[in-house]
Structures are given as C-alpha cells and as structure tokens.
Design a protein around this nucleic acid. Sequence first.
DNA 1: AATTTTCATTTGTCAGACAATTAAATGTCT
DNA 2: AGACATTTAATTGTCTGACAAATGAAAATT
Lengths: 245, 245
Amino acid sequence: MKIDPSSSADLSAQIAKAIRDAIMSGQLIVDERLPSEAELAEQFDVSRTTVREALKRLAAQSLIRTQRGAFGGAFVNRLSFEEAYGQQITTSTLLLSMNHVSFDTACEARFALERACAPLAATRRTADQLATMRAEIHRQGQDGLSDEAFCASDVTFHRALVDGAHNPVLSYQLAGAVEGMQPLMNMITFTARSRAEIIRLHNRIADALDRRDAGAADAGLEALCHYTQTLAGEVLKTREARRAP
Amino acid sequence: MKIDPSSSADLSAQIAKAIRDAIMSGQLIVDERLPSEAELAEQFDVSRTTVREALKRLAAQSLIRTQRGAFGGAFVNRLSFEEAYGQQITTSTLLLSMNHVSFDTACEARFALERACAPLAATRRTADQLATMRAEIHRQGQDGLSDEAFCASDVTFHRALVDGAHNPVLSYQLAGAVEGMQPLMNMITFTARSRAEIIRLHNRIADALDRRDAGAADAGLEALCHYTQTLAGEVLKTREARRAP
DNA sequence: AATTTTCATTTGTCAGACAATTAAATGTCT
DNA sequence: AGACATTTAATTGTCTGACAAATGAAAATT
C-alpha cells in the first residue's frame, strides 16, 4: 500500500481511505487483523502518530476495533445492526437540525417510510410487538407525563410497529427516520386534547395490526401523519403570532 | 468539560463523545470554532496527541472540519446531505455484506421504501426526473453493456424516481437502501431476456409517473420487486446445482 | 498437572520539536 | 492615501522517542 504525497489531504485521511477501501472491496475480511501500528507506519512510510490518527478515524465509523496487548491489534469489525442504528440516528438527527428541514418535510418522509412497513407488519407482527404497542399507548395516557417522555414513548411505539415487519434492513433504515425526528417532535407542546387524539389514532393502528388489516393500518398512519402536521402547524402559528403581535 | 478517568474507554473516545454530545445538544453551534488543540488538551488535562485523536474521530463523522494557520482550528461542520449520503451508503453497504443479509430481505426493504416514494413522485416529479429515467432506460437497452454498468444505470434510474418525490430526507434515506444493494445486485448475471423484462417494467413505471398515476407506479414497482426476487432465486438455484450436482 | 512468574508484543498516552499554512499586522513604495 | 510586499503570531500536521498498561504465550515453580 502506498500513499500519494502530492495530494492535499491529510496523510491520516489518505491512509484511512486506503484501509477503508480495502475493507469495502473485501480485500480485508471480517475479524482479520491489520498489521500493527508500527508495521503500518513502515508500510505507508509515515510516523506511528499518523497511522494512529487514521485508525481512530476508522474506529469512529465502527470499521475496526482495537485490542491492547500481545496478539492484540486492530481488527476488521463486523458492523452490527446495533452500531449501525446508532450512526444512522446520529447522522439523521444532525442532518435535520442543521439544515433547516421543515417539520412537514421530515414528517412526510417519516410517515411515508413507516407506511412502507405497515403491510409487512400487518402480515408478520407477533404478539410481542403488539404488546409493546399496547403498553406504550397505556403509558401515553398517564397523567403527569412530560412532553419528552410522551415523545419517547411515541418513538418506542413506532419502533415496535416497524420491527413488526421483521425485516432488519427496514428497522435499520427507519431507526434514523423515527429517532432523528424526536428533537423536532419535542418542540411540540402536547395538550391533553392532542394527546387524546394521538392515543386514539395509536389505538386505531394497533387494532388494525391486531386484525392483520394492512389497509386500515395504512389509513391510520396517514391520519396520524396528517394530524401531526396539523398540530405542528398550529404550534408554529401560535409562536409567530406571539413574536409579532 | 471533564473526563472520567475511571472509565475503561480510551481517553480520545471519551473526549470525542463529550464534544459530540455538545454538538448534538446544541451547546456548540454550526460554524462555531472549538478551542485550539492546545487549549483542549489543557481543559481535558490530556496531551495534544490524545486531543488530536479525538478530533480525527469527529472529523471521520463529518462533525467537524479543520483548517490550518492562524485563526484556523476546528469548526463545527454543517452536515450536508451530500456528506450524509456518503456515510449512509458506506454503512448500508457494509451492513448488508457483513451480516449475511439475504437478497430477498434486502430487496424487500429496498422496494418497500421505494414504493413509499412512488405516490409523492407521481404528484411532484418534474420533466427533469422523467428525462433521466428515460435516458437510463435507453442506456439499459444498449448492446455490450456490462452487468456492472447495467446495475449502475439501474441505480441512477431509481434515484431519479426517488428524487421525484422532492423530499431531501427521503432521498437521503433511500440513498442507503438503493446504493447499498448494488453489490448484491452485481452478483446477478443479467441475460438478454431478463434485461428486456426489466426495461419493460422500467418503462411501465416511467409511463405511470408520466401520467401521474400513483397506483400504476406502485404496481410497477411491486412487479419489478417480484421479478428481481425471482431472478435472484433462479441465479441462486443454478449456483447451488452447480456446486452439488 | 496446576499455578505462578516472566517476557515479548502491542496499543494508549505523553512531552517536545519542527514544518506548513494562513490571516492579520506591519512596513514600504508610489 | 492606497497598493503591495514582508513579517509575525497562531494553529494544525507530522515526526521522534519515551514510558505505561494490557495481554496472551512461554517458562519456571510447586
């Protein structure tokens, strides 16, 4: 492996890219041990410091893991769904918060994706997922629940719905869409009346999945999407009125 | 900011987490300059080396960018859709290839998500997206096209469809689903007959979007999903028969 | 045979140095 | 005064050399 010294990029970035490419192309396979830092430093003709910075970049993407001690080293990491969820959520959250994505756009995307899961969930959902959804609906009706806790319960409810499709790839993709929206959802103040309406729609969706009725589940999600956007629209209108009376 | 020395994790990982949390919670805003490496080293009571490794971790996630020279430093980066696409694709690709995700599962997820875009694309697609789709269909019919080139054109076609929904959040999410599947799609050998059938279905979808007929577009995608899975099933069956005759 | 000790290897951290870059500050000339 | 060249200070990028900490293998001991 060699590095282009004429490139303007940092050496550590170039080395990270070279190793990343090797992993993605299959030249380095899962659990394979990379050469030691000292060996890599020699191969790339850079200092150990630079190699280490490159390895930290890869570790940040969960592409490698490191272990100290003799027979330790850096190993190609099997990217787990668990780790991938985390990264998806981090990226999605920041993407939404940093790019002035409107509530409507994010909401539309989230529910469009969630509705894609509905037919599969109607067919495949187990008693387990249904129980989670019912439990969260119950929690959402409790008195003294903060808006944050209500939103968190909402996320759990929807993740159970998505998991009902029993497709890990869908669950992974939806993790970003559902959890990434939480900060935006947290901006809404949920009145007792709006909570009641959301709970009603949640029940409608849970009932539909209970009956394995894909069409009804989809309609319930559509209604929930519409209601959420209406709610957000009202909150926004109120705020603007308060700012410029 | 302080660091827990009793924790087992690397100092650089802890520092990276502390800064990442500050960014995600809004304590550090976009384009804000972080303290210099020397200052951070003093604040966290570690060496500059360790701080640098932490910053490289954050840079790998596109959370910060660095600039040399006086008045340079590390700045909180506005995560662009562009950068997020890239990370999504990297993560999705590795996730699929490293976890023995079956073709059917990946295919199901991809088309479920894509069908979520269809109704929006039928309403909002511009002439631009339609032109891209038609052009790619034309390319797909050319003689002497390699399987890889055919797949690449397929990706472009589907991304145009997704972009037709004119929802950047959807486009971002689908980038992972569509492009992450490319290595799996590349494993299929496309015969002249199967290419013709795929082109027929692509035309059917493009026609539906042309007419702004959401139902027909959805049906076309469903048919394409089914055909793709059939095709993959046959390829798999052939390979197994060859391995154990 | 089981246990303890030693040892070599490897990553994690540190201190100090210098190169490269860059924008501001300063100086110089017209 | 304004345009241009030079200096300067701050900051990241890289290197060197060192030591600590962890860890599994091998050797020594019981």
